[in-house]
Structure formats: structure tokens, C-alpha cells
């Protein structure tokens, strides 16, 4: 049973295939409208989420399938002390595929080890969020047309930002990609990500606190939110939360064809005045999240022999 726990569970070829299917879904939605008829997706969300959960559910509905939903741990058996393993075994009796978000790192892996249906990691704490990465890859491909040779600026919380870690891991598999790591000192990319991915693969990167200084070099600017829920100290969060705010003035330094991405939700790290700039693609990115999840659900159900 193949589950998706981290982005590297998928080969570059499999990612290319998923992107290809997502393109086909966008161009021929009617072709896919009934393909999952009678199939059920269980969304087990033990941590607050809006767009990821809705995106999974919208994806399954647009494939003609059904959704069984648990949002927030308090309303599930987990609140009664049920283990992840037992939850996974039980939900496997009712659903054909599971999407799970959990605040604890590794929880979806435990679910995958015990479920008899495929499990998709929909985010485990600050650890992995592979479907966000697939969303990001589809967006870059649709907006830029290729991955090779791009200079990608990631800005904000690079320490706890799981989307950033996964994006770096995924993009590092394409030739000629460079990274600009823009963050306050306290939220720098963890050394293990630098060592295990960037340095081991000899990928060019630069660490800086100066967003404007590197802006002209960027093909992609990936903004992230400083996440309150990842901080053990409220004081530290308040001190760092407004470290970077992207405004139209700062965008003047950017290339005409640079794209601005954000996994959403944003707080104030991108001024609303940027939204009308054609380079701002974060809402298109959110839409892409539904299409790539449709492609993923299809692939995993087929591989599990449930389609």
C-alpha cells in the first residue's frame, strides 16, 4: 500500500505525471467528473485547517466521490484516548483513502503503517506537507513553464516553515536551481536542511536578511507566514511576526516576470495592495491545490486497486 508521507516518496517522474494529469483535469474537467463515483475520502484533521481540508474535499467532490470528515481532534475518538494506529485501522473500514493532518510530527506515518487504505499526509506539525509542495510545483510549472535554472527566494519563517523545507527538497532535484534564504537570524533555515539537502547536493544558496537586496535576482518569491502556533513563547512570536512585509514599493525591484507565491493563510506579510499585481499568484496557487490533489487521489486510488 503506497501512502504519501513526504514529497520524496514521489519520484521526479511521478511528480511530472501528476502535473500532467492536473493539466488535463484543468483542461477537461468533465472527463473526470465521475471517475471516483462510489469512492470515499476520509479527511482526518486533528489541527485547524481551512484551505487544505476544503481543497481535499473539493477535489474528491469534483471527481464524483464522497467525503467523510473529522475536523478537530476534540470531536473524534482521539479525544477519548484512541491511538493513531487504531483510528487508522478503523477508518480504513469506511473509506477508500485517508487524508490526515495532525499536530504531532510523524502521526501520518504511524497511520500509514496501520491503515489498509492509502494515507496522504496533509501536514504533520512543522514537519512535512507534501501536497502543499505538489501545489507549489504545479504553480511554478504553470506560471514559469519549467523548473530548471530558477532562482527561488524563500522569505519569512524558514525555521518552522514546513512548506519551505519540502519545497527546497523537491526543487533541489531539478538542475541549476538556486535558493535565496531570506529570514531574520532567529528563523533561519535549520542546519540539517542546509547540510542534508543543499550542501550534500552542492546547490547554490545564499542566506540573507535583506529582501530588497536579492529581489532583482529572483524568478520566484515564496513568502511565508510567521506561525504563532510554532512558537513556545508569545513574546518571541510578537517580536518576529512582522519581520518582512511585501509591498508594491518593494516589488519595484523585482523582475517583470517574477512570481509571488504564498501557501496561505497570510496575515500581513503581503500587503493587500500587492494582490492586483499580475505577479501575485497565491490565489491561483490555492486553486492549483485542488487540481493537484485531484490528480493525487486518482493516482493513489488506482495504485491501491480501488479504481
Amino acid at each position: 500500500m503506497k501512502s504519501l508521507i513526504r514529497i520524496t516518496d514521489l519520484s521526479v517522474q511521478e511528480i511530472d505525471e501528476l502535473i500532467g494529469v492536473a493539466h488535463d483535469i484543468i483542461e477537461n474537467p468533465a472527463k473526470y467528473a465521475e471517475v471516483c463515483r462510489g469512492r470515499k475520502l476520509a479527511t482526518l484533521f486533528f489541527e485547524p485547517s481551512t484551505r487544505t481540508r476544503l481543497s481535499f474535499e473539493a477535489a474528491m467532490y469534483e471527481l464524483g466521490g464522497h467525503v467523510l470528515s473529522v475536523s478537530e481532534g476534540a470531536s473524534s475518538s482521539a479525544a477519548k484516548g484512541e491511538s493513531i494506529a487504531d483510528t487508522a485501522r478503523t477508518v480504513s473500514c469506511y473509506a477508500d483513502i485517508i487524508a490526515m493532518r495532525h499536530p504531532k510530527e510523524g502521526a501520518p506515518l504511524v497511520a500509514a503503517q496501520h491503515a489498509s487504505v492509502p494515507v496522504i499526509n496533509a501536514g504533520d506539525g512543522g514537519h512535512n506537507h507534501p501536497t502543499q509542495t505538489l501545489t507549489d510545483l504545479l504553480t511554478i510549472e504553470r506560471e514559469k513553464g519549467h523548473f530548471d535554472g530558477l532562482t527561488i527566494g524563500v522569505c519569512g519563517d524558514l525555521k518552522f516553515g514546513r512548506t519551505v523545507h519540502s519545497l527546497i527538497e523537491a526543487m533541489s532535484r531539478y538542475p541549476g536551481v538556486r535558493f535565496m534564504l531570506i529570514s531574520p537570524e532567529e528563523l533561519k533555515l535549520p542546519s540539517y536542511v542546509k547540510k542534508d539537502i543543499l550542501q550534500r547536493k552542492r546547490i547554490e544558496y545564499k542566506q540573507t536578511t535583506d529582501l530588497e537586496g536579492v529581489m532583482p535576482a529572483l524568478d520566484v518569491l515564496y513568502m511565508t507566514r510567521v506561525q504563532r502556533e510554532r512558537f513556545l513563547s508569545e513574546e518571541e512570536y510578537l517580536r518576529l511576526k512582522d519581520s518582512y512585509i511585501l509591498t508594491p514599493e518593494k516589488l519595484r525591484w523585482a523582475k517583470e516576470d517574477m512570481i509571488v507565491m504564498h501557501p496561505l493563510p497570510r496575515v500581513n506579510e503581503i500587503s493587500v495592495a500587492v494582490d492586483d499585481d499580475p505577479r501575485a499568484c497565491y490565489f491561483r496557487q490555492a486553486l492549483n491545490g485542488k487540481y493537484i490533489r485531484m490528480a493525487l487521489i486518482l493516482k493513489m486510488l488506482k495504485e491501491a486497486g480501488r479504481l
Binding site: 491511538s83 499536530p103 510530527e105 510523524g106 506539525g125
Partner: peptide
């Protein structure tokens, strides 16, 4: 933040990811 610190019945598993530098990493987190 690791699931293995909450679910006590889980086996505690670490894999050797860098033999040269003797680095083990938790399979969960």
C-alpha cells in the same frame, strides 16, 4: 513535537542516516 512522545506503545526507531558522522534520525519526526 514527535508522535512517539505521545503514543507510548509506538516502538522507538532511529535509522542511521550518516554512518561517517554517526548520525541517527527518528523515523517519525
Amino acid at each position: 513535537r514527535c508522535i512517539s512522545t505521545v503514543e507510548q506503545e509506538l516502538p522507538q526507531i532511529f535509522r542511521l542516516t550518516d554512518r561517517k558522522n554517526k548520525i541517527y534520525r527518528c523515523v517519525y519526526c
